[in-house]
Design a protein around this nucleic acid. Structure first.
Lengths: 162, 162
DNA sequence: TATGAAAAGATAATCCC
DNA sequence: GGGATTATCTTTTCATA
C-alpha cells in the first residue's frame, strides 16, 4: 500500500501538533518541533502528498448549531447481493445525519453514528430511511446522554516505521 | 448559553465549506459563498470567536500510521461518588487510544471508541486500564471490520436561528 | 540528502468608503 | 458588504554542510 518513507520522530511531532491545531503557521509549527521554516514546510508538504494527512477541516460545536441528539443505531442485515450493498453505501453516504458507519463482528452487522435534530426526527428516520435501506432486517438504537470525550486526534505513541 | 446572532445562510455556506476543507484561502472561500474577501474574513473571524468553529485540525489516515483495530467498548458502572467520577474522566482523557467516550441511556452506561494498535494490546488494555478505572464493573467489546463512512462534518440542513 | 537564509508570491488582516 | 492597503505568512529558489 505504501512505498512511503518511515515517519521520523519529527514528522510525528508535526502530526501531533496539526491534529490539535491545523491553523498553525509553518513558522510557529517549526518552532514547536525544533526545526526551521523550510524543512518543516517540506515535511508538511510530503505528509499531505503521501495522504498521511487526509484533510484539514473545521470542527463545529454541535450545541451551537441548535438542539441535537446523538444516537448509535445497530442494524442487522440479510445476506445481500453486491449491487444492493452498493446502493446501501450510496444512501449512507448521501445522508448527512449519518456521521459514521462501521461494519461489525458479532451479533449486529452495522453500527451507525447518527446526529439527529430531535427524537421526533429520528423516529421518522428509522421508518422512512433506515428500514428502507436494502438488506436491513432489524434496528436497535442507543441514545447518548453526554459526550464525555471526543477527539479526532489519533494516538501516535508507538508509530515509527511504516 | 449563547447571546450570539442567528446564523445567516451565508454563515452556513461558510461552515459547510470549512467542514470539508479548512485550508481554503479566504479569497477562495469568499468566491464559493458569493462574497468578497473582507466580509467573508470578518464572518469567519466571528464564527471562530463565537466558538461555533471549535477548532481546525488535521485528519490523519490511520491505515498509514501502521496497523490498528477500531473497537467499541461498553462499560457498566457502579454508582460512584463525584471524586471517583472525576478520576475516571481524567484517565479517559489521558489515554490517547480512547477517541470518544459517551454516556448512554439503557443497559450499558458508557461507550468508548478505542483505536488499538493490535488485539494483543487491547487485551492488556482491558485488564490493565479499563478494569482498573474507578466504578467499572463490566466490559463488553465490539470489534469493527470496515469503516464504511466516517465524517466530522455535522449536518447543516435545518440550521437557522440559534 | 537535508538544512538554513532569503527572495518572490500569495494570503490574512486592517483601513476607509 | 465592498475595495484598497499593509502586514504576515507561504512557497520557491539558492547556497551550504
Amino acid at each position: 500500500m505504501s512505498l512511503a518513507e518511515p515517519l521520523s520522530s519529527i514528522d510525528i511531532k508535526i502530526l501531533a501538533q496539526l491534529q490539535k491545531d491545523a491553523s498553525l503557521s509553518t513558522t510557529e509549527l517549526a518552532d514547536r518541533v525544533g526545526l526551521s521554516q523550510s524543512p518543516c514546510w517540506r515535511r508538511l508538504q510530503r505528509l499531505r502528498e503521501d495522504g498521511i494527512i487526509k484533510a484539514e477541516v473545521a470542527l463545529l460545536d454541535r450545541h451551537r448549531l441548535g438542539p441535537s441528539v446523538l444516537i448509535f443505531a445497530y442494524l442487522k442485515m440479510s445476506p445481500t447481493p453486491d449491487d444492493k450493498r452498493a446502493e446501501f453505501l450510496r444512501k449512507i453516504n448521501a445522508t448527512p445525519e449519518i456521521l459514521e458507519c462501521h461494519a461489525l463482528f458479532g451479533e449486529k452487522d452495522i453500527m451507525l453514528k447518527v446526529l439527529a435534530p430531535s427524537m421526533e426526527w429520528y423516529e421518522g428516520f428509522i421508518f422512512n430511511t433506515l428500514l428502507k435501506l436494502p438488506g436491513v432486517t432489524d434496528i436497535q438504537s442507543s441514545v447518548t446522554l453526554t459526550e464525555l470525550k471526543s477527539t479526532t486526534a489519533l494516538p501516535l505513541r508507538g508509530v515509527m516505521a511504516l
